[in-house]
Simulated scan of single mutants.
Amino acid sequence: MSFGDPNNPYGQPQSQPQQPGYGYPQGGQPPQPGYGYPQQAPQSVPPQPDYGQQQNYGYPQQQPQQGYGYPQAAGTLQANNGYINVPGLGTVEIASMGRRFAARVIDGLIIGVFYGVLMAIGFAGLIGAADDAQAAVDKCDATSASYQSCVDSAMAESTGGFLAAMMTAIFAIFLITLLYEWLLISFVGATLGKMAVGLRVVKERTGGTPGVGGGFIRWILPQVGSLLCGIGALLVYLSPFFDNSGKTQGWHDRAAGTLVVKK
């Protein structure tokens, strides 16, 4: 114990002055690294957003809209707005029933011209057959015992000629409608009536022409329906009204995998 220090008369040990960096910080200074306090890992600062662009904080970013409401997925509609996205074609407008009806009327008039020509030929053949039958009857001897058999033979020959002419006309009508509707739809995608009103038939999955198979399926279903006094064909042509998918596909379109769209 030392009594020589006037500032410490009781001999208490003096506390050593704190050196900078040992213990508590001086003057509010942060502790220096490595002197008594564990070091904290530097916090990574998240990248600041670019204030030049508007950010939607807290909400998922919306992808830019394309086509202003037109559908982007192939073969689908958006809100039944009358447009559809077809592979190879992009966004196209579905044909309205008014345009389809107008095309059907034009096609009917064109085919009707062929029917008229065939009917005229048929009537001319019928008149010629009747004249030939009358000439054959006139050749029969009315006083002969075989007169009745001669007349029957002449009438049978005339009737056979008439039936042959009728069958030829029916086959010609069938062939004309087949070639007109089937081949034009298969390879061109449109009949003359559809061309006139700006419509075409395409494959829903590819956007190409229906092809021979698709064109034939699309043509044959109304023809089969026409065997029921025409009621079946009428139902097939009206079936797009029953389509609730928004694509206005008739039964023949669904079977063939086709769509009717505007060019």
Results as ranks from 00 to 15, higher is better:
6 P>Q: 06
7 N>F: 15
8 N>V: 10
17 P>E: 14
22 Y>R: 14
22 Y>E: 06
23 G>Q: 01
23 G>W: 01
32 Q>N: 00
33 P>S: 08
33 P>V: 12
34 G>T: 05
39 Q>R: 09
44 S>H: 10
46 P>E: 10
47 P>R: 12
54 Q>P: 15
60 P>N: 09
61 Q>C: 00
62 Q>F: 05
67 G>V: 03
67 G>H: 10
69 G>R: 10
70 Y>C: 09
77 L>A: 15
78 Q>C: 09
80 N>P: 07
85 N>Y: 11
86 V>P: 03
88 G>L: 14
90 G>Y: 13
95 A>P: 11
96 S>M: 10
105 V>F: 15
109 L>D: 01
115 Y>S: 04
117 V>A: 09
119 M>S: 09
120 A>Q: 11
121 I>G: 00
129 A>K: 02
131 D>M: 12
132 D>F: 07
141 D>H: 02
142 A>E: 02
146 S>N: 12
147 Y>C: 08
151 V>N: 03
155 M>G: 02
158 S>L: 03
160 G>I: 05
162 F>T: 11
163 L>H: 04
164 A>S: 15
164 A>Y: 10
168 T>H: 04
173 I>L: 06
173 I>R: 08
174 F>A: 13
176 I>T: 14
177 T>E: 12
181 E>K: 07
186 S>A: 15
188 V>T: 05
193 G>P: 07
202 V>T: 03
208 G>F: 09
210 P>K: 03
212 V>F: 15
213 G>L: 15
213 G>E: 12
218 R>M: 09
220 I>N: 07
220 I>V: 15
226 S>I: 06
230 G>Q: 01
233 A>M: 12
233 A>F: 09
238 L>M: 15
239 S>P: 02
240 P>Y: 13
241 F>K: 03
243 D>A: 10
246 G>S: 08
256 A>M: 02
257 G>N: 13
258 T>S: 10
260 V>P: 01
263 K>E: 13
